[in-house]
Structures are given as C-alpha cells and as structure tokens.
C-alpha cells in the first residue's frame, strides 16, 4: 500500500511538473481553428525575442478549436493569458459571462485590437466542372456548397454575413431579398461542420461538395499543403472584411503574473516581424508598409465592414444567429 502511495505521489508530481513546465514562464494563447500554423511561428519568434530582451525562457502554449467553443472553455476555466479569436463577439462573451476582461477591451490595442484581418473567399476543384465567380453562382440549383455551422463556428458567421451583406448591397438594401438569398444559399449546403477546419477537411479529404466557402488564409493553406493543382481560389468581387481580434484575459493573466508578457506578445503581432508572419500565413496585415509589400498576395476586391452593414456584433447576433433568428428560420425551412 505504501508503495502504491509513493508511486501515486510520483505520478502526481510528474503531472504537476508537466503543467508548470519546470520554472520557465508559460503563456497560454487560446485561439480559433485556422491559426495553428501562424501562431506556432509567432510563438517561436516571440519566445526568441523575449529571451533576448529579458533573458527569461518563455514557453507559449497554443490551443485551437472552434471560436465559440474556445470562448466557452475560457469562461469555464481554461486559463488563457491571451485569446485570439475569430470575432469580437466571442471575446465580448468573456466580459459578459465571466468578467474576465473589461468591456472596453477592444480599445486597448490598435485597429480595434485586430492586428490582422481576413476575408471570405471560395475554393473550387481544379477540374473546372463547376465555374463560380460571384456569390449568386452559389445558389444555382445542383451546386453543392460546403461551409461550417454559424451556430458553432466564428468563421461561419463571417461567411454568412459576407453572403448576406453582398446580397443586401446588390439589392439596394432590400432585406427580404438578402434573406431569400441566404436561404437559397444554405439550401445548397448539405453538410455543416462544427468548425472552419472541419469544413476544409470535408471538402478536401472527404471530397464532398463543389465549392467551399472559407477564410482566405485557410484557402491558401489548402493550396500550399494539399497542392495547387487540385483546387482554385476564387475571389468574389465583393466580400466582408473579417476582423479577428486579440485580447489579454486580465483576470487569468493577473493570477499568473503574466500581464506584461501577455501584452508584449500581442503587441508583437503589430510589429513588422509579426506582420510579416501574418502576411506569410495569408492574414491581411494591418501595417501599411507590410501590406503594400504583399499587395500581390491579396487581390483587390471590395470589402465592406460589419459595422457599416450590420452595425455591431450585438445586433448581428440578435437578428441573425440568436435562437429564433434568421439563420434558425431558414434552417427550419430547409426541412
């Protein structure tokens, strides 16, 4: 029995050791799905810089998942020092449901706390059987579209809002027409994955669907990882400017004593080095100098913001995604 106790205590000690990572400073970044490759490079670069600057070893953990789910986990106690999520609404939730950071968190960093932006594009199969150029091509009968579920995925909400906003603009602000458009669009989506990454896998590995609606950076990742010969990226003439924000989670960072390093980490994203990495991973850089350098990678297109079309996340959420909102209504009409 004593032997068993000893073994158990050793195991527990090992577990504890694994968690504190042996005395170095550790930082946890809870992020959304498509950022794994980007942040693993950022983490390495920033750790190096931090070591040079302060002499401290810094170990940065990265957790990826659906944006809304990640926010829920943080509220439930996943002690992130920083969050880098798909949309501001999910970070607002950290304030609203957990008082983990102040309401004005978005004012604390430049560009509404968005060090990089992105947009929503299409990915088609290279065989050229299906040709799409613009949003209205997606509602043609017989076309099968893949996109994640707006109820669970942040990227999916950007997708929905991009489609709705474009239709609104084309119909000169006719909300009924825009609603008809998204209804027809979602009729053409046979499977909705929980997260953006899941949809990419559905489209590329399981080979379901003719068109994938996706984050711009995800689409490029597919091109790079799976092969340019198999898919084409289609930029619609108009799409939404997706603004994935970042924030220090004050409550946890304070408890861990990592406020300074957490803020430095986020500010690093705005530096030329950070911006270069963002551009490399096909996030649109916020810094003009870097953006100009990579202009060729980001074809010009008309981008509208959430604010100008939908006002705020709160309103968008209430009208479109809340229980009984437009998305629920059109989902019900699908059956």
């Amino acid at each position: 029995m004593t032997r068993f106790c000893r073994i158990l205590s050793v195991c527990l000690a090992l577990g504890a050791a694994a968690h504190c990572a042996g005395g170095t400073i550790s930082l946890l970044n809870v992020s959304y799905d498509p950022t794994r490759e980007f942040y693993s490079e950022v983490n390495a670069a920033f750790s190096k810089e931090w070591k040079a600057r302060t002499g401290d070893d810094l170990k940065i953990g990265i957790s990826n998942g659906g944006s809304a789910k990640q926010a829920r986990d943080v509220i439930a106690g996943s002690e992130a020092d920083v969050v880098t999520l798909a949309l501001a609404w999910d970070i607002d939730a950290l304030h609203e449901h957990g008082q983990l950071l102040p309401a004005d968190w978005q004012q604390r960093l430049p560009n509404n706390s968005c060090p990089y932006t992105s947009t929503i594009v299409f990915l088609t199969r290279h065989d050229g059987k299906i040709k799409v150029k613009d949003w209205e091509d997606l509602i043609r009968p017989g076309i099968s579209v893949v996109a994640p579920n707006p109820k669970t995925s942040g990227g999916a909400r950007w997708i929905y809002l991009a489609a709705y906003g474009d239709a609104l603009k084309k119909n000169h602000g006719d909300a009924a027409a825009a609603r008809r458009f998204v209804e027809q669009l979602y009729h053409n989506i046979p499977v909705m994955d929980e997260g953006a990454r899941g949809s990419v896998t559905t489209f590329t590995q399981r080979e379901i669907g003719d068109v994938l609606i996706s984050w711009e950076n995800e689409a490029w990742l597919v091109m790079e990882k799976i092969g340019r010969g198999r898919f084409d990226i289609i930029y619609p003439p108009r799409s939404i400017l997706a603004e994935p924000p970042v924030a220090v989670v004050d409550k946890y960072a304070k408890a861990h004593g990592t406020e300074a390093v957490a803020e430095a980490y986020l500010r690093f994203l705005y530096t030329p080095a950070g911006q270069e990495l963002a551009a490399k991973h096909h996030f649109r850089p916020e810094l003009d100098a870097v953006a100009r350098q990579h202009a060729a990678d980001f074809p010009p297109m008309e981008l509208f913001t959430l604010r100008e079309v939908f006002g705020s996340w709160k309103e968008a959420q209430k009208i479109h995604f809340d229980e009984g909102g437009i998305f629920d209504q059109i989902s019900r009409s699908r059956r």
Partner: peptide, 23 residues
C-alpha cells in the same frame, strides 16, 4: 482538455489535431 499542444493533448487528441493540420 485545454487542447494546448504539447501540454494537454493525449494521443487520441493529438491524432485529431494532426488530422486537421492537413498532414
């Protein structure tokens, strides 16, 4: 799990993660 790579991923979770990394 906190889904922190290298910290709170067990083998099955690691498999899932790798699968979504297009490897």
């Amino acid at each position: 799990s906190g889904h922190i790579a290298g910290q709170t991923d067990t083998l099955p979770l690691r498999v899932e993660k790798l699968y979504y990394e297009f490897d």
